[in-house]
Design a protein around this nucleic acid. Sequence first.
DNA 1: TCGTTTGTTGATTGACCAGTCAATTAAAAT
DNA 2: ATTTTAATTGACTGGTCAATCAACAAACGA
Lengths: 193, 193
Amino acid sequence: MPRIGMMAQRKDALVNATIHEIGRKGSLDVTMGQIASAAGVSSALAHHYFGSKDELFLAAMRAILSEFGREARQALGEAQTPRARLSALVQASFGGRNFQPEVVAAWLNFYVLAQTQVQAARLLRVYQQRLVTNLTHAARPLCDDPVALARTAAALIDGLYIRHALTEAGPPDASAAIATLERYLDLATGQRP
Amino acid sequence: MPRIGMMAQRKDALVNATIHEIGRKGSLDVTMGQIASAAGVSSALAHHYFGSKDELFLAAMRAILSEFGREARQALGEAQTPRARLSALVQASFGGRNFQPEVVAAWLNFYVLAQTQVQAARLLRVYQQRLVTNLTHAARPLCDDPVALARTAAALIDGLYIRHALTEAGPPDASAAIATLERYLDLATGQRP
DNA sequence: TCGTTTGTTGATTGACCAGTCAATTAAAAT
DNA sequence: ATTTTAATTGACTGGTCAATCAACAAACGA
């Protein structure tokens, strides 16, 4: 049933299936067949559209990263004060789709992928740099070493992610993670003496 | 040339080779053959002594964890004040063999392994729990919410590990990570107002 | 109407790998 | 001296999987 314009939605379905399957299995050891099945197509089609497994993984990473970027940009836009901008970045990190168990698990695996795949490493570095830059910017009026604050907060976010991926409690308890971050931010900006 | 008492040193060599190879490749996708070669034996021998690849991986995890435990215990023993005990735990986390690139990379991969292997997950949870408990204990006289401090510090340690595994700079720059942790601990214990 | 493009798959290939087994060596025990 | 036991491996097996290919189906354009 070849209607034209399938490409876009097939690619989309495959990318989503990739994230879903990696997250579900908790490992990069998912076959093209599994992913393709989850997307409702044959493995041959996945190869047809993406060329290779690596390309598909990269596409999935880009999807997550741009999703995060979108949410971050939106949250930043709504924030009025510097402190609110910090909170917005925290909210974006732990809010929405980003903190769903599957996505967190996939995320962790992409960190691993970045150790082998040069392109994955590059993608991840761009994301990290952008997050630190955003945090630094927001923190500049609030403390005397905004870069240190930004780096610490970024590491804290990653650490909470990784810990969340392990203790696979059903409900994605974002509020605890957010509270931890906010507590640190208050401390570092000298809010609560 | 079968001399007796080979088992212990073969097992040791295989466990070390496992950490080394996983760290070098940055992935759990290492074959028994590669590991065995690195240890100077045949893959059949690795199976003979460990039974399966999973068992070998678990043994490698246990090796890293007990190494960390040993260093932590030693550092704690030398510390006199509560604040020094916190620093000792930080030192143990980023000092010695624990922060060598290969070990960090292997560590990250064990986090991934824990998503599939129940036993690996259990091991990791024990380590995490023990770290948090130690940190909480040390922090109890220093602040009013020692558990929150401990959890935050633990997450921060993990986050710095993961970030270190990515930006694969040759020299293992532990000092920066330690400085970040110490800065947070000073803040959280109300040292520098 | 008929070629062309786009979408789609089943079958196949080629490589790789965990785990098994039978066989070999030599030390230790009797 | 001979039996037992530990150490060790090469060769093999069964299975898995990424990637390819040839073929088919339906829409579109001429």
